[in-house]
Nucleic acid binder design. Structure first.
Lengths: 234, 234
DNA sequence: CAATATCAAATCCGATCGGAAATGTGAAAT
DNA sequence: ATTTCACATTTCCGATCGGATTTGATATTG
């Protein structure tokens, strides 16, 4: 499998460069969208991006088609691509309705399938969030959001159902797009809810895990919903 | 907005031809896959398809990228695309696990939001299946599957949650890919279960609708699972 | 005879070209 | 002054080209 790479460092870097330009473009575009460097509804010109990134239009189109399939950009035929609009209140409700259906079940399954390694990963993510909670003065919200997302992702993985994992991954990106408008999040409550959830998960209390997750999601929704009342877009 | 089209007939047909070649290729490929004219694991050559369909490689690639995002084809870098493999027993379990989470909830919501028009559409789909049940000697299974899919799709739509609709759409295609291997389905039981479900839906019995759907899905799974034991592919 | 290495065919993937549609600008006319 | 028409720019979308990689076949050697 592994080749001999005497002076392979450059060879590998070149290989990596050649391997997946389309993939790289996709990831660049994805991060630009979730970081809001590309604003919602902002037009995304293919050849402008091609010039900017120094590649041809072909990998740009490929990336945009993928992003469209994931609902992150929208296409109008013969007009062009643009970043998806800011989700409105209805969309927000749908996301949480979906999470309420999937995540408690995922937690229940995760509690049943819990392994040593998964437990450690969960504990680690939780510890990171606890540390950040103290440094709250630094307003390190994006870091916290990262670990929170990882915490939930680990639980989804531990459910053993790859369809749930993929669906929640998509939902998480959209949730994040929503949350990044009001990047204030009451982290203390989230952490205390995580503690209850973590206890149930690590001790195999499947019913408690399901309930704790449902409670956590419901409260998380309540923490955001008051601020989404003002919908001036569409 | 509307142009004067004196001899516009040909102009419009040409316009339609120009409008969405990529879209047409996508639909052709999609139907070829779900009808198993392209077998699972079968390689899909880009330029072969380009010659066959009389278009260039560009729209072919676009369609394949979309299909890959939907999990219907898989890509190996620098090697090519191929139709997704036949789902194995584990994949089958995951699909039904997911349906068990979403469809009962969709039925509950649908019962709550039931409208006159939706009720009529449901009744119509159900009637078609009842008719086909009598013509069972004709082995009109694909027709039955079509109406069954529509029946479930109407319920999903009636839930009012577009995320649930999209997710169940994807699951339905995969379910269909699975079922099309063993295209025998005991339709009598399905119809009688639909009657219970339909009664609950039309009369606003939300809890009953949820339970009836869960029961229907569980039984549907039981009807297929015995035949999926023999997994000679991976 | 088996295993390996070399060569050729097929194929993908990115780059570039050209036609067509849509949007925006500006001038002219009522 | 507002509307309308014409033109120019921008942009997409399909077609085609060329380099790079993989795969399959043939031949050679132990």
């Amino acid at each position: 499998m592994t080749r001999f790479l005497g002076s392979g460092e450059t060879a590998q870097s070149r290989l990596k460069a050649r391997s997946a330009m389309g993939e790289d473009v996709y990831e660049v575009l994805l991060s630009q969208i979730i970081s809001l460097k590309i604003a919602p509804r902002e037009r995304i010109s293919v050849d402008a991006l091609a010039r900017e990134l120094g590649v041809s239009q072909t990998p740009i189109r490929a990336a945009l088609i993928r992003l469209e399939a994931e609902g992150l950009v929208v296409k109008k035929h013969n007009v062009g691509y643009s970043a998806a609009p800011v989700p409105n209140a209805r969309h927000f409700e749908e996301i949480y309705e979906m999470r309420m259906l999937l995540e408690p079940a995922a937690a229940e399954l995760a509690a049943r399938n819990m392994t040593q390694e998964t437990a450690e990963r969960l504990q680690e993510a939780h510890d990171h969030m606890c540390e950040l909670e103290n440094d709250i003065a630094q307003r390190n919200y994006s870091q916290f959001a990262r670990f929170d997302a990882e915490f939930h992702a680990i639980i989804a993985e531990a459910s053993g159902n790859s369809l749930i994992v993929d669906t929640l991954d998509r939902l998480r990106i959209h949730t994040h797009l929503f949350r990044s408008r009001q990047h204030f999040t009451i982290t203390h409550e989230a952490v205390s809810e995580h503690i209850v959830l973590l206890d149930a998960l690590l001790n195999g209390k499947t019913e408690d895990a399901k309930w704790a997750m449902a409670d956590h999601i419901a409260r998380s929704r309540e923490r955001i919903v008051p601020f989404s009342e003002m919908d001036h877009q569409l």
